[in-house]
Every structure is written in C-alpha cells, then in structure tokens.
C-alpha cells in the first residue's frame, strides 16, 4: 500500500472539539472502557485503532450517545462537546446526534429512494424551509460525498440498489446532510472492496475541511493514510494518543509498538 496516496493539506488543527475525561463504560458487569481521556481536535481526522474487542467502537458510540439504545450499557465520566457535557441530563440525544453524525460499519441505506435517504435528516430536523431548499441540501450533500455524478440521474431509484461503495457514500451524504460538526465513522470501509475503500478514504480527507472526523478502523494502513491523530486502544484502555506520524514511526508505549509491528492484535 502506498501510504502517500492522499495529499496532505494544511488545516487548522488547534481547537479542541471533543474532550473526554475519565470515561468508563460498563456493559452489565463487563468493564468495557477504562478511564479514557482524549481530546479530539476540530477539522482533523482522528483514528481509533486497536485489536478487535478493545473498546474503540464502544468509545466511538459514546460520543453521540448511541450507547443509550443498549439497555445494559452505562457510561461514567465526562464527554464535552464544545465545553458542554453531552451526558448532562439537559441534553437531548436527538439534538446531540444532529451535531454528531455517524456512519456505520455496514452501509445501511433505508429502503427508500436515494433522494429520500439524504433528505431524511434535514426533514426530521426541519432544516429545509421548502422543497427547493431541500433539493439544494440533497445536492450539496451528495456532492460532498462525491457521489452526485453517479446518482444525479436516478435520485428516485432505491438506495438499496446501489453498489456497496456507493451505498456507503450515500450513507455519508445522508450523515452530512444534517450539517453535523463531528462525523463518527465506525469502520466505514470494512465491508467494501479496495476500490470503493479508496474512494471513501479520499472522501474522508476532503470532509475534514468542514468536520471533525473520528474514524474507527482495524486497518493500520488506513489509519496512517487518512488520519492526523491516532489513538491506540487495548483491552479497554487508551494506551497512546498522538500525531499519526509519531504513533506509527515512534510509538512510546511498547504495546503500541507490538500492535503496529503485528505482534498483538
């Protein structure tokens, strides 16, 4: 794999978007996440890597409270989005999720038309004043997801009829249509073939101009290709967090090194 396929751009990476402090997650009696502190920067791609079952997806799902839908799941500690605690009881997860969008492992377009898939978020959140507004949002989102040219002639065709890579980009378009500030991606390429993976990776790099992107991946090459910051999780602990370059070339923790060199995982 050529790690330099994606051109690095200069983006402002100084503002902290999300800051997690002492986060603990329990699934019933299982302690899934142990005391994680992390600062996620704005306009940055942050990659969570680690062996499977290390808690990286769980932690990701804490960031927009998707874990709320699991009855036995309990979250402790603080997660601040723009200095506001997202687990505060005044916070409505519905509003939170409009700000923190999510793209899932398997492409999951709704069994509706392409147009309706993208328009779904704006409709429920009332972002469009008119049909014309909605058309604009749909087009803009599809363009941002780099799929406009492929689907502009068949917006009324069902979203489930697209190829896997197209479906995933459709899901990204659906996620960006609500104008989120953070985009969470849970192994977005694991169900895709290499070509589609490349397309999505290029897209992720472009998305960072507007969003803070957090991506969970089990592919270290992918993390190296698309991210500026990398966090390494192991057995529910955040082992190491830093610039991607540094993590991959000069890891401080020997567990990180073992993982990167393929000894654990």
């Amino acid at each position: 794999m050529n790690d330099m396929r994606i051109v690095k751009r200069d983006v402002d990476m100084n503002d902290t978007k999300i800051s997690a402090k002492g986060v603990q997650v329990f699934y019933g009696d299982t302690h899934a996440i142990k005391d994680v502190d992390v600062e996620i920067k704005d306009k940055t791609v942050t990659a969570f890597i680690g062996p499977s079952g290390c808690g990286k997806s769980t932690f990701l799902r804490c960031l927009n409270r998707m874990n709320d839908t699991i009855d036995v799941c309990r979250v402790e500690g603080k997660i601040l989005l723009d200095q506001e605690d997202i687990y505060d009881k005044r916070v409505d997860p519905v509003q939170l999720r409009a700000k923190v969008g999510m793209v899932f492992q398997k492409p999951n377009p709704f069994p509706k038309s392409i147009y309706d898939n993208v328009a779904y978020g704006p409709r429920i959140h009332g972002l469009a004043g008119s049909k014309a507004d909605l058309d604009v949002i749909v087009e803009k989102s599809l363009r941002r997801a780099a799929i406009w040219d492929e689907v502009k002639d068949r917006l009324q065709a069902p979203g489930t009829g697209l190829s896997g890579g197209q479906q995933q980009r459709l899901c990204i378009a659906r996620a960006v249509a609500t104008e989120p500030e953070v985009l969470l991606m849970d192994e977005p390429c694991s169900a895709l073939d290499p070509i589609a993976t490349l397309q999505v990776e290029e897209l992720i790099d472009e998305l960072r101009e507007n969003f803070s992107v957090v991506i969970v991946t089990h592919s270290m090459q992918q993390a190296a290709r698309v991210s500026q910051k990398t966090a390494f999780f192991h057995l529910g602990n955040l082992v190491e967090y830093g610039d991607t370059q540094q993590i991959f070339t000069n890891p401080k923790d020997e567990r990180t090194e073992s993982y990167i060199t393929g000894r654990i995982g």
Partner: peptide, 8 residues
C-alpha cells in the same frame, strides 16, 4: 442505528 444516528 442509521436513523437514530442521524438524530431521529
């Protein structure tokens, strides 16, 4: 998940 993740 897809729908809830969008804030529905």
């Amino acid at each position: 998940d897809g729908s809830l993740g969008l804030g529905a």
